[in-house]
């Protein structure tokens, strides 16, 4: 059990005793059962686990787009339960950056316009917004695609545009849901290196949901969920992966975690 009182200072995400159920015709189905979760500022933490384990639900709760039933959720020092709907929206707009599995770029907008969207929502003037968005597109290597529409880009390029959109508002916390799921190995690697640079060079905090064990080596820590419960909270994931000199796909972290768990 994490000592929250000790570790909350400087934490980007603090979750304690989180419970969430979905109502169905057959009754209530619990998805998260008393999850504790902590992410410090500047950390890159992966949420992993089998399908239906509650990863996306946990990410949605961290992203303030889904409410928990019980527990305590603190995002960037703000108690989410105490925030009104408008305040949660403002928190998402000003402090969080989202990268979605299927990019969710707006079809009618060019690459540049898509990256500008969060700044437009923040009320920043179009000229400044375009300047900032252009520099982000340059950073993700897509400056020459600024006038293209998403339908004219490859999946990898779309994901990099989505990443630029998530970063353009200079958020403290970046939430990514399966960002490599639609990408091939090479594009997935590029995107993950971008995420890695965000934490090491920009000091951003990243929480990323993934199935893809090939990319575990990019994480500071992997948080493993199974049946709505935390199974593993491995800080050594990256070092183990990198230390072995093997890719995550060749030595799944899940196996490492289970061994470690058993050892404990």
């Amino acid at each position: 059990m994490i000592d929250y009182c000790m570790q909350n200072d400087g934490a980007a995400v603090v979750i304690e005793g989180l419970e969430k159920s979905y109502g169905t015709a057959a009754g209530s189905t619990p998805v998260l059962k008393g999850v504790d979760f902590l992410v410090r500022r500047g950390e890159c933490v992966y949420l992993a686990g089998p399908s239906g384990s509650g990863k996306t639900t946990l990410l949605s709760i961290i992203g303030c787009i889904l409410s928990a039933d019980h527990g305590r959720v603190s995002i960037l020092g703000q108690d989410v339960f105490a925030l009104s709907g408008k305040q949660r929206t403002a928190l998402r707009r000003n402090s969080l950056g989202f990268v979605f599995q299927r990019f969710h770029l707006i079809r009618g907008l060019t690459t540049l316009d898509n990256v500008c969207v969060p700044l437009t929502l923040q009320g920043i003037c179009p000229t400044s917004a375009r300047r900032r968005a252009m520099s982000l597109l340059d950073a993700v290597g897509l400056a020459d695609k600024a006038d293209k529409h998403p339908c004219n880009l490859s999946a990898g390029q779309c994901q990099r545009v989505a990443l630029a959109r998530a970063l353009v508002g200079d958020p403290e916390l970046i939430l990514a849901d399966e960002p490599t799921a639609s990408l091939d190995a090479a594009n997935g690697q590029d995107v993950m290196e971008l995420f890695r640079r965000l934490t090491t060079e920009e000091g951003k905090t990243v929480v990323l949901v993934t199935h893809d064990q090939r990319i575990f080596r990019f994480a500071d820590r992997v948080f493993w969920l199974e049946n709505g419960c935390a199974v593993e909270n491995s800080r050594e994931a990256q070092s183990k992966s990198q230390g072995s000199g093997e890719t995550g796909s060749e030595q799944p972290l899940y196996a490492v975690s289970c061994d470690k768990s058993n050892g404990e």
Partner: peptide, 15 residues
């Protein structure tokens, strides 16, 4: 046709 896009806008902080 664009419900998903409006959902995206809401998710990224549109009021």
């Amino acid at each position: 046709d664009r419900l998903g896009e409006y959902g995206t806008l809401k998710a990224i902080g549109a009021t």
